[in-house]
Design a protein around this nucleic acid. Structure first.
Lengths: 267, 267
DNA sequence: TATGAAAATGGCACACA
DNA sequence: TGTGTGCCATTTTCATA
């Protein structure tokens, strides 16, 4: 059995795991040399490993997540369908070819075992997609708008330093989408070193964010345009449109790199 | 309202759409010059456009899809949760920080409005993730194993030539996972030009695939080791382990490039 | 858009266990 | 034999204008 499935029991070592972690965090802007430096091996090795992981099917593919609503007012919709277990593979395959379908998940359940995400320019095109699903034998049980989607790398494959830094310390929800969060400014975040005014004008700080307090060395500062944001400041942020993974981007360390510089083991 | 949301009504032109299409198909191995050639503009323009699309939040991020089951026997699980609408944003944010969580979808529904995909090394770590979800206020309604996931670019942004070529013409399911498909060999597929034997030994043709018939120019050939596969052959393929998006990879045109050469619009 | 400098990639030969 | 490494030509990126 294992003869024609040689990839089943592939074992990863620490290098593979860190590669996967880095690529999950940012598949496009993470170069082999960048990963190489983190794990202290040569860039060529990283490239070889990536090739292997791809060949063995561990790494499936690299995608781009797109906000279709911003793009052209497109509606992202999740269809939850029932398909017969025998044809699940085949139907999933054909479903993924329907124009507008961007993601298909096969689940090991009796009901709602096929989740299909499709994008439509309008209600009409979504109806068309719904019909196409039915014709292929996927019975639609539910149809919901997808508001947003967040993807994260697999934490256990990340750097050991269990730095939960970039998470909001506390979140207080207000009316509507607005809410308040406290974040600790990471030591290599993008916003560090800018004054509030610079951050705003350079686009480092999104327009709908308002910094209402800065806690530094135990005292609370009143934020002014010329106040400089430093590492380890605890910043209280008010957001009009809701806190989002990407909203707090500037406060975080760069995606692919660890929080503190890793000590090269073998220079 | 639109004043502080300048990105809402961003309009894409044909170049933007083709960029998005190419990056959705392969975020990592698609270089700016490759896209540039397809749409007949300079590579620098493509690069600028990509930067703009990223800045405006149209392109959210680039990830890597990983088969954790192959990797280390990891279990990929979908938790369908209820969260209160007011805190949806904040909870989703915190949920995404739980170690092991790799994807969170926010839905615009009353029930099951948060879909969380997590990877666990074993049942125990999934229980831990389940508890973490509950503690954050996400009530778990359902918990299913994810068997597989397929992602596709948004077809309407692709090349006009509505080439549905790479789709299996017909799928017949047999017992178990095995089934039979007919595919038309794309004119620039990887397998074209190889004999069956070469394709097998070079890894172009997966081990669990068996070619049972080749239809060419209206006649049906009996496949032999020395039979060469040509473009436009209609090949009948038997698969032991089920047809998969990736299984038929070799029959398809390369991901990022159109089926036939695109006619430059403005040389 | 174009151009030149810097960086990354892919291929291949070689060393090492 | 397989895996890591160093070096090469080529491609791609990035920051100038």
């Amino acid at each position: 059995m294992a003869s024609h499935r040689p990839d089943s029991g592939y074992r990863l070592d620490e290098i593979d795991r860190r590669i996967i972690y880095a690529l999950m965090a940012d598949a496009r802007n993470t170069s082999a040399p960048m990963i190489a430096e983190e794990v202290s091996v040569s860039p060529a090795t990283i490239r070889n490993r990536i090739d292997q992981l791809e060949d063995h099917g561990i790494i499936r593919d690299y995608h781009t997540s797109v906000d279709f609503e911003r793009a052209e007012g497109g509606l992202t919709t999740l269809f939850q369908c029932n398909v017969s277990v025998e044809n699940r593979e085949a139907i999933a395959q054909q479903v993924s070819a329907i124009p507008g379908v961007i993601n298909v998940r096969k689940l090991m359940t009796g009901r709602r075992n096929l989740h299909v995400v499709a994008v439509g320019a309008d209600t009409q095109s979504l109806e068309r997609i719904g019909r196409a699903l039915s014709e292929l034998g996927a019975e639609i049980e539910d149809e919901d708008l997808v508001q947003d989607e967040i993807s994260r790398p697999y934490t256990p494959y990340g750097p050991d330093e269990t730095a939960t830094d970039p998470t909001p310390t506390d979140v207080i929800s207000l009316t509507g989408d607005a809410n308040v969060v406290e974040v600790t400014v990471s030591s290599d975040s993008e916003i560090r070193g800018y004054t509030l005014e610079e951050a705003g004008s350079r686009g480092v700080l999104p327009d709908d964010l308002l910094i209402v307090a800065i806690e530094r060395d135990g005292t609370v500062l009143t934020p002014r345009g010329e106040t400089t944001i430093r590492a380890d400041d605890v910043v209280t942020v008010l957001s009009r449109d809701g806190i989002d993974d990407r909203t707090l981007h500037s406060f975080r360390p760069p995606a692919a790199e660890p929080v503190s510089d890793s000590e090269p083991i073998d220079p």
